[in-house]
Design a protein around this nucleic acid. Structure first.
Lengths: 180, 180, 180, 180
DNA sequence: TATGAATGAGGGTTCATTCAT
DNA sequence: CATGAATGAACCCTCATTCAT
């Protein structure tokens, strides 16, 4: 691959990340191209569809998330790791409107994208949860789906930037509820 | 009002409710018309804009909700009333993805719609919450916005009809977290 | 024809006359029905198309105009009659946006409507002009089409109500130009 | 700008000019696209709204008109300049029904468009008129609005191309009427 | 390879006309 | 016969994707 091709792909990815985070999934491709300083054709060349572009971004994000989950699992006791991960996810989503929309199930299947990118997001999430449950830190009847729904619930509505204090309060509330 | 007009308005409302629930707020008006078995003009006659159609759907619900809140406030102790209302709202939203999206703030201001319909939804919600807080049943730092977000969080997002058992569990979790 | 039918037809005609005069030819049929206090179906029953409704109105108007032309021709010397008619037409059009649009050729053939209504509008206009020309009061090379164009030119643009003083001035200017 | 873009923009402008002239301002954008041999999106790309397309057509003309007015004012005595400009405007409008409609004020504010394009059309027109009035060549009570209305009156409305002889006659008539 | 112009389906809304009530 | 609800084509505009330059 040519050097300028790599450079442009990078620019598109960066621009798209910001654009999705700021404006949500409905941001026009042309707007992403504009921000990247390239033509719309260049965006399409590197990412044939808008969805594939979003998938690429999510993929990076998922990589970070999986890494974070692994780190937490390795360095902290089960319950603490689980709740720290919950808090981390809420922060991620709160700062990224596109991610929040994807988690809320609006127009993009984040787990499928992770899987096709070779990351077992569902697996690490399940791991954190079951270990926390085994350790008696979390109610035994809670499912992974529950946790994801509650993460979404911790992000106040469409505001571009949520109040961090409110966010902390929400995480606290949900965490308290989840505790065994 | 003429019989066929009433009938078609009903059909449009029903179709819209299903369509919004199935496909989200972005469902085309033409699709709603198709499901209702009427022309697009008929939809527009009864509901001049797409937003007004959505408002109508939400509005009926809001009426019921406000009535329910009043009843609970009148017949039960503060804390019990509040948590019963929370549970009731989750059930409502679970059966109506349109309502859920409205609560989530996705593209529609439900409170404004309620107000313009003469219903003080925000008021009754705040009433239930503050009374429960005064009675020491709910954390004093929780806001109305928090409660709404958590309601949304209690509903899994993808499916039209959530598993009722999971829903109960979610309500339990959130309620536990909210308790003082 | 039934009495109520006649009454409604009258109401529709009156409402349409006002509506066309006020809002121009593009006023919706439903608006005319509303003003007449009847249903849209009633309008369509009496006047199958919007054009036929406008034709009926123009017809009455044309009747008046032809009568006015005849009266002027009978009671005044040729030149005076012609210029008085010119002034009269400008006043008519200025007070009636629909008529002005029709004279300006926007979407309705007024002369054809007159003819199909049995009125020889073109004839009486030509009569006034040629007699004025024979009497040496008007330039001999002027045509009927010129006169009509100049009438339109005397009506300032889309204003609902033109300044009458400006209108007088315009008539004066055009009249002066037309004189032999 | 790319060659094909320029070419298509030209085609759209040409088609629009003809279409507006033939069918009036109400011609659909799709019809303009069809005549230009391009898709509707191409029209919208070059001219985001229908009004902006119309403005562009008028705008080119306005530029020429302002230049012409400046030239006449610089090279001829006041009265002669004014009447030459009148004649010129009539010729322009006769060849361009879009311009004629704009002058007639039908659905488009030509002066505002000129101003936003940086051209002081109203100013140069007023300059020519007041200088001609100061020189005693034109009636002192005539306004700019009068002149514009009379220009419109010089153009027969139906046909795309007016008979030039009739046009000369009309200009003569109006000029005679305007003289002090 | 990058560009950005071209495409055209699809969106919501309006309205003259038709037809069940 | 009056009514007004129903119709659906037509309007302008947006945007993901394709393709000539």
């Amino acid at each position: 691959m040519r050097a300028d091709g790599v450079r442009n792909q990078r620019k598109v990815l960066d621009a798209a990340m910001t654009a999705f985070a700021t404006d949500g999934l409905s941001v026009p491709v042309a707007e992403i191209a504009r921000r990247a300083g390239v033509g719309t054709g260049t965006v399409s060349r590197h990412f044939p569809t808008k969805e594939s572009l979003y998938a690429a971004i999510v993929s990076t994000r998922v990589e970070e998330i999986v890494a974070k989950a692994g780190e937490l699992a390795a360095t902290r006791p089960p319950g603490e790791a689980f709740f720290a991960f919950l808090s981390y996810m809420v922060d991620q989503a709160a700062e990224n409107r596109g991610l929040a929309q994807a988690l809320a199930g609006a127009g993009f299947d984040i787990e499928a994208a992770a899987e096709s990118g070779g990351h077992d997001l569902a697996g690490v999430e399940a791991g954190l949860l079951t270990r926390a449950q085994s350790a008696g830190a979390v109610r035994p009847d809670v499912t992974n789906a529950d946790v994801k729904a509650l993460i979404v619930g911790c992000i106040a509505r469409e505001q571009p930037a949520t109040d961090p204090i409110a966010r902390r309060r929400m995480v606290e509330i949900v965490s308290a509820g989840l505790r065994a």
